Simulated scan of single mutants.
Amino acid sequence: MRSTIGVLLAVLITPLAQAELIDEIADRGELRIAVQADNAPYSFKENERMTGFEIELGQDLAHELDLRAEFVEATAAEVLPGVESGKYDVALTPPTELPANDGPFDVSLPIGEKKLVIPFQKDNPAFESAVNNALQRLKDSGRTAELEQKWFKGVPQTAAGQ
């Protein structure tokens, strides 16, 4: 009996027993998305409202996940540490600021011609699957191409983060 209780306690306090990120987000009902407010055409303020490619993509992604999008303005230095700590669920980050593959993040499949990826906390396979499936639906519907055309048409590759 004592060994059974010990085993149960050990299982409960291991990282594998922690709640999956997708469950925490679903309970909250919103996807917290870190964006930079001064990073046109990705995200920027226009008439005191956030707009840009990342804002529209984030809204579409949250909608595909049956969640509300909650955009949180962050500096470039705050974005990835905020994702790692759980302050933000995801970051929509220009390709020049992507985390290393061996870092503390997992990332989505590349999005569109710009090859944008979405970093999130490592070891959350259900969340990764949900995000990738949602992104695939957006791609299949033509929405990601539509957003790229809208926000990056005529923008030189270097100015658009590559």
Rank of each mutant, 00 (worst) to 15 (best):
E56G: 06
N39W: 12
G103Y: 02
A37F: 10
L31C: 07
E97W: 13
R2F: 07
E54R: 00
G161A: 05
D89I: 07
T75P: 00
T144S: 03
K153Q: 15
A100P: 01
S85Y: 05
V155T: 08
F105Y: 14
E24C: 06
I55W: 10
L138N: 06
R2L: 12
P94K: 13
G82F: 04
D38L: 07
E56T: 06
T93M: 03
E97I: 01
Q36L: 07
A10T: 08
E70T: 14
E73P: 02
E84H: 13
E78N: 04
E54W: 09
K122I: 11
A126F: 11
E73N: 02
E84S: 13
P99M: 00
K87V: 05
L9W: 14
K114H: 10
Q59W: 07
Q36H: 13
L98H: 12
D66F: 05
R49H: 15
A159G: 12
E46Y: 13
R68H: 10
S43K: 05
V155C: 03
A91W: 04
L147A: 05
V90S: 01
F127P: 05
A69P: 08
V155Q: 06
T14L: 09
L116D: 04
L61Y: 04
P156E: 12
F120T: 04
D140A: 14
I22Y: 13
E113M: 02
Q157T: 10
W151M: 03
V90A: 02
L12V: 08
A160I: 07
R137C: 02
Q59E: 15
L92I: 14
E146A: 11
T96C: 08
Y42C: 08
L21I: 06
A160W: 03
A76L: 12
L16Q: 11
G29K: 07
L98D: 06
A160T: 03
K153D: 15
F44V: 11
F127V: 03
E78I: 00
E97R: 14
G6P: 00
V7K: 14
I111G: 01
S129H: 09
F152Q: 04
E64R: 09
G82V: 04
L31H: 03
E70G: 08
E56W: 02
A160R: 11
E70L: 15
H63F: 10
P94F: 12
A145N: 12
V11C: 14
R137A: 10
E64I: 01
P125E: 03
I55R: 04
L8Q: 11
A145F: 06
G86V: 03
D89Y: 07
D140Y: 06
L135T: 01
A126W: 07
M1Q: 11
L138V: 01
